[in-house]
Design a protein around this nucleic acid. Structure first.
Lengths: 115, 115
DNA sequence: CTTCCATACCTAGTAATGCTAGGTATGGAA
DNA sequence: TTCCATACCTAGCATTACTAGGTATGGAAG
């Protein structure tokens, strides 16, 4: 997040994190990187955002984690989507679709506006 | 908000409220109605959301208000966009565009997904 | 060898914000 | 006259992302 539009993530972070794990398990630092890349640099999340979110998602049963130590590397906590995490992600995508549509309709207000 | 996707508005409400006033001044109840209509029923905001938001926006100089009493009617507080409210709305639309694009890129993750 | 940096994790506390759940009041319909 | 829809308000709550600190290790630079 680049300061300007701080706080805008509210409520959408979970789905974004889950999506970052869809292609396979990853650890916190890598997830931050994935999200930054995918979002084209728009979401540059501080660790203080990601780690608590991961804990929350695991607590909720949407992620599972394992401590791993790659040969000659530091200890990492690797997260993976659980079955309910996968289905929550699907819900999250649908919810985002509805939400975005409603916001656009609300902002548009009859007048056309630049895509 | 239909419960399921509660909290998703976070950070976007202000722009939506400002947009509701773009076509002319209105009072709180009418703004709720406008937003519900425009959003196709998705955003059915409780008064406890709107009134504090209006106060916040006025405090921030983005709205101005006047008490009016229509002939044979109840007392209403009518809000209007100020000049800086108008320009904030423009910023809000741009910010939404960037944000939505980044979320879609983050959720999409290489795989195509239903518009 | 020591120093420093990037990696990698963590958490307590803060600020913001939307919502819940209450309250008041009035005009018109039943 | 009773009730509901309109119309406004607020205190307190829950959630959530962020700030600002902290720990530790492997590798590179000096």
């Amino acid at each position: 997040m680049l300061g300007m539009e701080a706080e805008m993530l509210k409520g959408h972070l979970d789905a974004i994190v889950l999506a970052a794990l869809e292609s396979g398990p990853a650890h916190g630092y890598a997830i931050i990187e994935t999200i930054r890349m995918r979002s084209g640099g728009t979401f540059d999340l501080p660790e203080g955002t990601i780690y608590p979110a991961l804990h929350r998602l695991e607590e909720a049963g949407l992620l599972s984690s394992d401590w791993t130590t790659p040969p000659g590397g530091r200890r990492r906590r690797v997260y993976a989507l659980t079955r309910s995490g996968t289905s929550r992600l699907a819900e999250g995508r649908k919810a985002w679709g509805r939400f975005a549509k409603a916001v656009e309709a609300s902002l548009g207000g009859g007048r056309s506006w630049p895509a």
